[in-house]
């Protein structure tokens, strides 16, 4: 497919998705919004992991920081949602820098554990600092924003709003990846020492990729808080980070649409299993995480590039 044809197909798909909201139930529209919100975060994680080659196990912490910034600023100080988005993005960017700086100076898998520990720490702060975060009760009645004078309170309106925001941040990500910066990210993932000898400052670029990925997580979190209108600590525990990581891997890390496919599977599959009445599917609901873990191992052994790499594998086999 030529790039132009691909863009048109993509635009049609997005419009079809937006129109589908007219035919779906309220709860289904909510699930679609939830997918959009999580895709923002996994897209950021894909930059960190797929393009810059760093394992991060703390994306949910940034997602949570974004959500709490929105909840605290809008409910307690009455700050507008539109002001909160840049605040959350910048805050997460700098927290990402501060966390990534020590971890990225040394061996790269250290970042995985630093982010994991960081996620636990953020969770503890959310749970313990009751004056600020409401403790385990969380913060409820987080307001949804207005677009000029149009209220986004209805499920459908908020879905369109989130989808549009997702398209915008996705385009920004695409531009970033096409820029010389984005090329440098891929160069240092593929061979860090070679990239360094070509004059790319590895630490600076990886750090930047990680911090931008964190900012995407924060923006996703702001939209999450607006969608659910309630934040509480357990949502942002590191199991959520693992789920985001798996979504990226499952779809195919380092592929632009990998996180989209992975996130949709990871979010919708458990919902489908939960809502079904057939005994076979309900049995699956109990065991699906076991199957998921095993599937992940099998996927790694058999297809280390994720679902979207099936095509490549076929092509390689045909050539061989």
């Amino acid at each position: 497919m030529s790039p132009a044809a691909r863009n048109i197909a993509l635009a049609i798909a997005i419009l079809a998705l937006a129109t589908s909201a007219f035919f779906l139930q309220r709860s289904q529209v909510y699930l679609l919004s939830l997918c959009c919100v999580y895709v923002m975060a996994t897209m950021g994680l894909n930059l960190t992991m797929g393009y810059a080659g760093q394992m991060s196990l703390g994306q949910a912490a940034f997602f949570g920081i974004g959500a709490y910034i929105d909840a605290i600023l809008t409910t307690k100080l009455g700050v507008s949602f539109w002001v909160v988005i840049p605040i959350a993005a910048v805050a997460c960017f700098f927290v990402g820098l501060a966390l990534g700086f020590p971890a990225l100076r040394v061996q790269h898998h250290y970042l995985a554990f630093a982010t994991l520990g960081f996620n636990v720490l953020v969770y503890l702060v959310m749970r313990n600092e009751e004056a600020l975060t409401g403790g385990t009760f969380g913060i409820s009645n987080v307001p949804r924003p207005y677009l000029f004078t149009w209220s986004l309170d209805s499920e459908r309106a908020y879905f369109w709003f989130t989808l549009a925001a997702l398209v915008i941040v996705a385009i920004l990500m695409r531009l970033l990846l096409r820029s010389p910066w984005g090329r440098a990210f891929a160069a240092l993932r593929d061979n860090p020492i070679r990239a360094e000898s070509l004059g790319i400052n590895i630490t600076a670029y990886t750090l930047l990729a990680f911090a931008i990925g964190a900012a995407y997580g924060g923006v996703g979190g702001v939209f999450y808080a607006g969608l659910v209108q309630y934040v509480e600590p357990s949502t942002f525990y590191f199991t959520t980070s693992l789920m985001m990581l798996l979504a990226v891997i499952l779809g195919g890390s380092g592929r632009f649409f990998g996180p989209v496919i992975g996130t949709v599977i990871v979010i919708l599959l458990p919902e489908v299993l939960r809502s079904s009445s057939s005994p076979a599917l309900q049995f699956m609901q109990k065991w699906y995480l076991v199957a998921f873990g095993v599937a992940l191992v099998v996927l790694m052994v058999w297809l280390p590039g994720g679902l979207l790499s099936i095509g490549d594998r076929r092509a390689r086999k045909a050539a061989a």
């Binding site: 693992l242 990581l245 891997i249 998921f292 873990g293 599937a295 992940l296 191992v297």
Partner: peptide, 9 residues
């Protein structure tokens, strides 16, 4: 990632 899979399973 495979060991993460083992851990989840």
């Amino acid at each position: 990632i495979a060991t993460l899979g083992v851990s989840i399973a």
